[in-house]
């Protein structure tokens, strides 16, 4: 293949990566922004989403699209419910203390991993794509499903953005993010906001996982990469800044795609980590974060 088409292919792969990463990282960023909780279990919520998607598609007979649609709805709901439970049982009791919650979510991540190992097993298992369409470009064929992933992620992100900026629930979340004590003084039930935000953040990771699982397979250890990359993206974008998170997801996803295709996936991860180190040294508030 010539360089031009090869680059195009790399960029398309990068877009798929960006799309799923954006969903996952926005969830992490939302949780950190509103709750000031660094959720180390975020990658495991991603993994649980993928595993739940496998169970749902197994249970739904008929055309793969049916099972997949059910998974896209049910897996995030299930993961969101697990997260809300974890919030009420653990984080709330720690008073959302920033350090204690880091330790607690590390513990949670092991619990989720071991639970998945027990109930799902050590194997990687595929989930069928909802449709099988190949787009024939002049230079190469490309999976129509991957393009659908990008579109779906973009639609979900637009939905989240509208929810945060236009809805009353979104306004309440942003007010809580700005000042939780004062939010209480205006009748906002901060505990309920936190449970909702934690569930929503986890559900976003699960949505990303459901979208990717027809490409990547579900495995009980699959949460590591999304966690690392989400942290990278959230730090580069500026902690708690949704716009920054989106831009950074695009940046990291595209460069990861290009570097993986032309060189190696390992080099891509090394460079991303190096980039984060540079950001932390020279611009700790992130490329797009305001002064806090």
């Amino acid at each position: 293949m010539e360089f031009g088409p090869f680059l195009l292919l790399a960029l398309m792969e990068g877009m798929v990566m960006s799309a799923v990463l954006a969903l996952t990282a926005v969830g992490l960023s939302l949780v950190f922004g509103v709750m000031r909780v660094v959720n180390v279990a975020h990658g495991e919520f991603f993994m649980l989403g993928a595993v739940a998607a496998w169970f749902v598609t197994q249970a739904v007979p008929g055309h793969p699209a049916l099972g997949f649609a059910a998974a896209l709805l049910l897996a995030p709901l299930f993961v969101g419910a697990v997260a809300a439970l974890a919030d009420g049982l653990i984080l709330k009791r720690l008073n959302y203390d920033p350090e204690a919650t880091i330790v607690a979510t590390i513990g949670l991540s092991y619990i989720f991993q071991q639970a998945a190992l027990s109930f799902y097993g050590p194997d990687a298992r595929p989930v069928l794509a909802p449709f099988d369409l190949r787009l024939q470009l002049p230079w190469f064929g490309y999976s129509g499903y991957k393009i659908a992933v990008v579109i779906a992620a973009a639609l979900i992100l637009i939905g989240i953005w509208l929810f945060m900026t236009r809805s009353r629930a979104g306004l309440v979340m942003r007010a809580t993010q700005a000042d939780r004590d004062t939010a209480r003084a205006f009748g906002i039930n901060v505990d309920r906001v936190f449970a909702t935000v934690f569930a929503l953040g986890a559900a976003m990771a699960a949505m990303g996982a459901v979208l990717i699982v027809p490409i990547q397979q579900a495995h009980y250890l699959m949460g590591h990469d999304p966690l690392l990359l989400s942290f990278i993206v959230v730090i580069i974008g500026g902690l708690g800044s949704l716009r920054g998170t989106l831009v950074a997801a695009l940046l990291i996803g595209l460069s990861d795609g290009v570097i993986s295709v032309f060189f190696s996936p390992t080099l891509a991860k090394i460079l991303a980590t190096l980039f984060v180190a540079l950001v932390l040294v020279f611009r700790p508030q992130g490329l797009f974060g305001g002064q806090r």
Binding site: R168, L171, V172, R174, A175, Q177, A178, D179, D181, T182, A183, R184, A185, F186, G187, I188, N189, V190
Partner: peptide, 30 residues
Amino acid sequence: AHEVPRHGIGYVPQGRRLFSDLTVAENITI
């Protein structure tokens, strides 16, 4: 704490404590 203001107590905290990332209209809406 979140039920106290519903009984009709308005609070203007020391140092104002506005929701500073929100607009004036959004602060009013809250």
